[in-house]
Design a protein around this nucleic acid. Sequence first.
RNA 1: GGGGACGUAGUUCAGCUGGUUAGAACGCUGCCCUGUCACGGCAGAGGCCGCGGGUUCGAGUCCCGUCGUCCCCGCCA
Length: 622
Amino acid sequence: MELDLLGTRHRTHYCGELRSEHAGKKVFLAGWVARRRDLGNLIFIDLRDHTGITQVVCRPELSATAHAKAEQVRSEYVLGIEGEVALRTPETVNKELATGEVEVVVRELLVLNEARTPPFPLDDEGRTNEEPRLRYRYIDLRRARMQHHLRLRHQAGLVVREHMTDHGFVDVETPFLTRSTPEGARDYLVPSRVHPGHFYALPQSPQLFKQILMIAGFDRYFQIVRCFRDEDLRADRQPEFTQIDIEMAFPTREELFGIIEDLMAKLFALIDVKIPRPFPILPYDEAMEKYGSDKPHLGFGLEWKRVPLPEGARGKIHVSEPIKVLRVPGGALFSRSQIDKLQEVAKSAGADWFASIKVAGDAVPPLAKVMGEEAVRSLIASAGAADGDLVVLLGLKSQPPASESSAASAAAGQLSVEKLRHLDFASGDVRLDLARKLDLIKPGTWSFCWVVEFPMFEYDDKEKRYAAMHHPFTSPREEDMDKIESDPSACKARAYDLVLNGSEIGGGSIRIHRPDIQRRVFQTLSITPEKARERFGFFLDALESGAPPHGGIALGWDRIIALMCSETNIREVIAFPKTASAVDLMCDAPGRVDPDQLHELELELKTAESMEAVRARLKSVE
RNA sequence: GGGGACGUAGUUCAGCUGGUUAGAACGCUGCCCUGUCACGGCAGAGGCCGCGGGUUCGAGUCCCGUCGUCCCCGCCA
């Protein structure tokens, strides 16, 4: 159809703005056709923009041209409407609509653009699958929900910038084209045309840059920054994601926590949530014991305890110590099959020994037959269970000792650090499963906490070496400095995570600012001085140039916004996200490139076919 | 890299132990309709049942492979 030109006309109001007090006003609206109801000689059009919907009415007696055009109009056409705001008669008021007391009577209708029939309905309340939504993201983003999420994200960004600025933090941009540092996640590489055979890497985080900014005397830095990781995706992980990157010189942990807690309070005020402060601070080991997680959900009870086997049970069951006990209030009412299912969860979580005790009056639990009544009673007592409760027991089986008295077998009865962590994590899975089954996770709960005192090092069984649990620039606690070499497993880090409702939304640490300590940490991590120089030489030089004590944190922006929007998937708060296989369905990235481009970069593809050819040649040589 | 779920009309789905011409709702197209707002009425169009192979007299349905989407583990702050 023939399209109209906007000319010099300008919009006087948004589609969600008009109220009864505008009655009689001449207005010009612009927007998309959400719906058209053609009653013959009377046509209603719901005109939509990001603010809402206004009903416009076309009558042939007022404008035959406008009415004729309105007959041709279809969903998602772009219209300009000139007309008069009219009060609706009481019986035609639409209470569902903010603008429902009025309508715009059309004098002139401009069809500014046509539109293809939408590939899916826009008012589907989330029923459309993600694949078509991502392919036609420009349609999907027109929905009120997506508009809300991205606009809230914008507002939240303003809060961050204002808050950080008020506290003396300076927004400094750091490079996207940087150097590959093969610690941690896989890098996205960018070939250099000017330096053939050399590659930039996209930053996994601006970690070293922000530390260097501290050395450079910026004192306090922040950035809302994109980071890149070439790892497999999840509901809460994208190959490119955004973090609020923060670093400060001469920090105390408490000061940083205060700044971040204030920030969180301001952010959640945007969704009318008042969050209690200060946030609880949990040492890592306590979080692992009680909640079986390094990102515990504190929005409900159910706390595990590590306990030794009761005296009487030793030798009767072959389980390493400690075991874990949990009181489930009211759990004595669990059915046999409910308990069986719990056991399945425990086993698939990695706890190979599971038992439960129903506490019901004087009834003797079956477990007493195995370990004796005394032992059972002592376990009930350790769990703090009372009548009507269920006590859940979790453990890892031990090999029956070969000879009673050998020191080796005594040690076999005790869990190693790694095994204990394994058992703790299993208990955490069971706890979350119970919470879901007992419906303990209430919507509207905003349970923040800090987890602190993470282990500095983690022993990697496969690589036979220690790895940094946070990253290699994290400082050990001052009182643990002597353990860097002597007892790495016991060395705690000055690292902290921010957790909300069982989701990790931030992590950081006080950094190493002294080159001597950095060298010692590298050594424990089996990073030779040569390797350290090759990878981080520039940074080590900077550390030797007057690095102040410093530390910071990075907040997972996508996750925070998703939580604020009550979304479980961060793709819902990212305008143009990628699928689980890191594909952009809308623009079909990644894609092949022109051979000329490759030639310019002096790159050559080893296609599957050419690899086959190479293999065949090797075989013929043998 | 591994495990699980799914893939049928534009969309969301149904399709039984394999059986004749693959359905529904919404959407779409045309006609009718002056107070609708999920408008209504009548008529209609629309399908490589993801793709390839196999089993079978016969496959949307069973088997194998492959591709895609989602979730989880590994991996990753």
